[in-house]
Nucleic acid binder design. Structure first.
Lengths: 335, 335
DNA sequence: ATGCGGAATGCAAACGATTGCAACCGATCG
DNA sequence: CGATCGGTTGCAATCGTTTGCATTCCGCAT
């Protein structure tokens, strides 16, 4: 923890003015090469580092992007952040990350705070209410939504219509006619989309779709076990892999044979899906790409152009051992 | 995206000077209550938001903490971040998060960048080389290390000595005399600590400890399967749960009965450990608390005091079905 | 009436950097 | 030999906010 060196210190030491130092360091062509070399040398010696706060303040544009995510520990969001961080960094921007804890009110507070420090906002799987979202979009910075489509803002999302179709076609192909969806958090837009598209596709495929409420974590899936077992569905689709793995775990504990007695499939294909027993059939999506695309939209906008059209990412079905042919008759077991 | 409102705009509209507006908004007692009310009203109407960049610049202290983590998608780090973010936020600070991708050189670059924007640094499970760390500590901001002890800096860590003892005592209690450790990333200080303390404890418990190199993710554990199986150990300790789950998965695929033929235990107890089959015996640690403590150290230091002594968090062994009595004789199977 | 004190307010100087413009230099040209 | 010019350099203003100090205004005591 040494003392902070300022431009004026370098100037004094180098025997020039601050303007000269500034120009030398920033590579202006108005300065003679020898002076540049000298100043650079002195600056290096003194360990000068520009005060970015002063710099950004003077230049007027914050090189920071504020990001909100519902939950940092969810692998889906971590990977989106990974992609976003890498792209933003390449573009000279940094990420200010805030976690809302799946709470719409907290997310709004977060947004208000982040905007004060950022030149742009990325809302990842925003749990904001309609009104909250309007408020966010009225802020004096560009906003991109990931996994939530809105007007007058950037938007990148998973193509849930395609996703749901892939899942249901896979299951009907295995002979399933009755499918249960174990839902996610009520405030999640993507849960809504999953339900909507599942319903619609189920209708067109002549599949009966049951729905139940769930959540986003492993325990939500585990706890759903009894209800799932007592339902008449032969296949289950869970909100995400964490829920799916939790459900598989309950089935294992209760000696339900997956997939012989029940098929389980899910969205997202996070790494552990492959290591679940049985390995979980899931929809792979390029989450990191989602972050990259969000940045691209933002970059376009920051360059002064209009918002590009929303990006939609089509997932890919990864079939594993958790799904199999529908059993022929009703389950005999008494739960 | 509206126009930016500045103090001077509010002042003009309210018919006062900027100083009055500033004082009114910041709650100085030098201003008459009516004026305060009026100014507040006008500011609200105009939608004034202070330019934090200018504010922090003027006040001279950056209210931002830079954090590096090796990998955002690792649940261990996510939870540390969660705890850190919450505490820092409560203290009026924000987090600037950077991901090094497990790469020491990249982490150093990251540190250099973060420090320009932050008033303090937290290095989470730093992969920095000794020299890199020295460099970081020489920076003009206070630095806290999580899971890596250093002098002249803040430090909070898991008590790996206690951790390793808990694991080995559990295993010896089950009759295991030969244990294999599947290691983590070479650049990880905590892997070094785990090895060191395991060796030491093994000696004192008269257990034979074998070691092999591994990594930090599920596939590292899965890939370690053949080597593990062909070893003479009856129990395995993995670097972390991700590796452990991967290993369990391989054992399942290859019909090795865990824990009858082989016991598996691990560090960290991330949520999925409980949902693995069999559920994984692991060491629970309060990762979020690690983040909170890091903040507390930082806060003490920022308040002008000396660094407090390092915090050590003692983990707790969660025994699950992946560990059991040692088998009596050498394995017969041919891998 | 004058002076004085306290409360409320405004003026102006910072913070550390960037940058338009003026000033300066030596050399070249008329 | 003085004016001019291109190439360097320094002066000073500026970004939006905070804050020490001066100023104003009031009432009240002398």
């Amino acid at each position: 923890m040494a003392e902070r060196v300022r431009l004026i210190d370098v100037a004094r030491e180098a025997g020039t003015s601050v303007s000269t130092v500034s120009r030398a360091l920033n590579g202006s062509d108005l300065i003679s090469p020898e002076v540049v070399a000298h100043v650079r040398a002195v600056a290096g010696e003194l360990g000068y580092r520009a005060d970015k706060r002063a710099q950004e303040f003077k230049l007027g544009r914050p090189l920071t992007v504020g990001v909100t995510v519902p939950d940092l520990t969810n692998p889906f969001f971590s990977e989106v952040l990974k992609g976003l961080a890498a792209s933003a960094r390449a573009g000279g921007y940094r990420l200010l990350i805030g976690e809302s804890g799946e709470d719409p009110a907290e997310e709004l507070r977060l947004v208000e705070e982040l905007v004060d420090h950022s030149g742009a906002l990325v809302l990842c799987s925003s749990r904001l209410t309609r009104a909250g979202l309007e408020k966010a979009l009225a802020l004096p910075v560009p906003v991109v939504c990931i996994n939530r489509t809105v007007k007058n803002a950037g938007a990148v999302a998973i193509d849930y219509r395609a996703a749901s179709r892939l899942l249901l076609e896979h299951l009907t192909g295995l002979g399933h006619r009755r499918v249960l969806y174990v839902g996610g958090p009520a405030s999640s837009w993507s849960d809504g989309e999953r339900r909507r598209t599942l319903r619609r596709t189920a209708r067109s495929l002549d599949v009966t779709l049951d729905e139940m409420d769930g959540g986003w974590a492993g325990n939500h899936g585990y706890d759903a076990g009894p209800t799932v077992l007592s339902s008449r569905a032969t296949a289950v689709i869970t909100f995400n892999d964490l829920v799916g793995v939790g459900l598989l775990s309950w089935m294992h504990d209760n000696d339900v044979d997956v997939p012989a007695e029940l098929s389980v499939a899910s969205y997202d294909d996070i790494p552990i899906a492959a290591y679940a027993r049985p390995p979980l059939t899931s929809l792979r999506n390029e989450r990191a790409r989602l972050g990259e695309l969000a940045w691209e939209q933002l970059a376009t906008r920051l360059a002064g152009n209009d918002w590009p059209r929303p990006d939609l990412l089509t997932p890919e079905l990864v079939v594993r051992a958790s799904t199999g042919p529908a059993r022929r008759r009703a389950r005999i077991r008494t739960s």
